[in-house]
């Protein structure tokens, strides 16, 4: 294990953040973060790798610590000026520590005409901060975004990857308090909450239900998957709480696969990461309003279900 001084500096910073994966595994201050060096090694080649490196660091730490940028410069052999320039250019990157919960209020055209600015103002009043700021207790960071691509659901608010659609001014307080107790949200006893869901593609809105094939005595969800050069179908149980699947190819455990809509062939991919294993989440629209997101890793049970802004 390499004990580089700048890497040690970096890892003491993430000690304050629940987002660091290593924090959950170890006690006390972390001496060295293997993840960090791995990330840099992985994307080292080519100039475009820089953004990928910064993205991964930000997804782990919640922001880009100064020591991290210095280490990236050292490891990739690029100048700090270049890396700092890229990090300040993109709005995605933040050089300031962000709160535990990231609240993004959409101010795009469609959300704007449906009252997006009022919602943003209400969040500002409720949290007592302006857009782009973090509350003093480091719980919430409020940002406004220009479009989330879910214009039909506007005004849209995204809190930690959960979409709240048709948000009303009176609902803002509830969204904040619910996000604050977010941890318990994922713990759903499976036997108590099994109900079938009807889902459709978030791009073409075509139903993904396969009425001809039953899984758990309910129509299965049919999608196309691709991994390791294989392309084939995958049927998922539509029963919420059941993890039964059928697949054309045998899926190796822990493999992350790409999901596609069988109708419009668009990749089913959202911006959010699995709360359990940090793989990309696969979003699907639930009939009746809402979004379900499932983890793209085989064997991982991470999922998020938002029904009309009500978190189950």
């Amino acid at each position: 294990m390499n004990s580089n001084s700048s890497v040690t500096d970096l890892c003491s910073t993430c000690n304050y953040f629940a987002t660091c994966v290593y924090r959950q595994e170890r006690e006390g201050p972390i001496q060295f973060c293997e993840m960090f060096v791995e990330v840099v090694e992985k994307h080292k080649e080519g100039y475009g790798g820089l953004i990928a490196i910064l993205e991964e660091i930000q997804s782990k730490y919640g922001y880009l610590p100064q020591a991290a940028l210095r280490t990236v410069a050292e490891k990739t052999g690029r100048s700090l000026v270049d890396i700092y320039g890229v990090a300040t250019f993109y709005r995605l990157f933040s050089l300031e520590p962000r709160g535990k919960h990231l609240v993004s209020v959409c101010k795009g055209t469609a959300c704007h005409v449906r009252g997006g600015p009022t919602i943003a103002e209400e969040f500002e009043t409720q949290l007592g901060i302006g857009a782009g700021q973090t509350t003093s207790d480091r719980k919430f960071t409020l940002t406004t975004v220009n479009c989330l691509g879910a214009c039909a659901l506007g005004p849209v608010v995204v809190v930690d990857g959960h979409y709240y659609s048709n948000v009303k001014k009176s609902e803002v307080k509830g969204i904040i308090s619910r996000s604050d107790v977010e941890e318990e949200r994922y713990v759903i006893p499976a036997d108590e909450q099994t109900f079938p869901l009807e889902v459709s593609c978030p791009r073409c809105n075509h139903s993904l239900m396969d009425k001809e094939h039953l899984l758990d005595n309910a129509p299965a969800i049919r999608v196309t998957i691709s991994f390791d050069g294989h392309h084939g179908w995958l049927r998922l149980s539509s029963l919420y709480g059941s993890y039964n699947i059928e697949s054309e190819y045998k899926l190796p455990h822990d493999r992350i696969v790409n999901f596609f809509c069988p109708h419009c062939h668009a990749e089913l991919v959202g911006g959010s990461k699995c709360p359990e294993c940090s793989a990309a989440m696969v979003p699907m629209i639930v009939r009746g309003g809402g979004i379900i997101q499932i983890c793209s890793r085989r064997g991982c049970r991470g999922h998020m279900l938002d029904l009309n802004g009500v978190n189950v």
Binding site: L69, S79, L80, V81, D82, Y84, G85, T88, F89, L95
Partner: peptide, 15 residues
């Protein structure tokens, strides 16, 4: 080097 973009673009040292 250059930092930021748009009207916030500026020249200076990192941090």
């Amino acid at each position: 080097g250059f930092r930021g973009r748009g009207e916030k673009r500026s020249i200076g040292t990192p941090f």
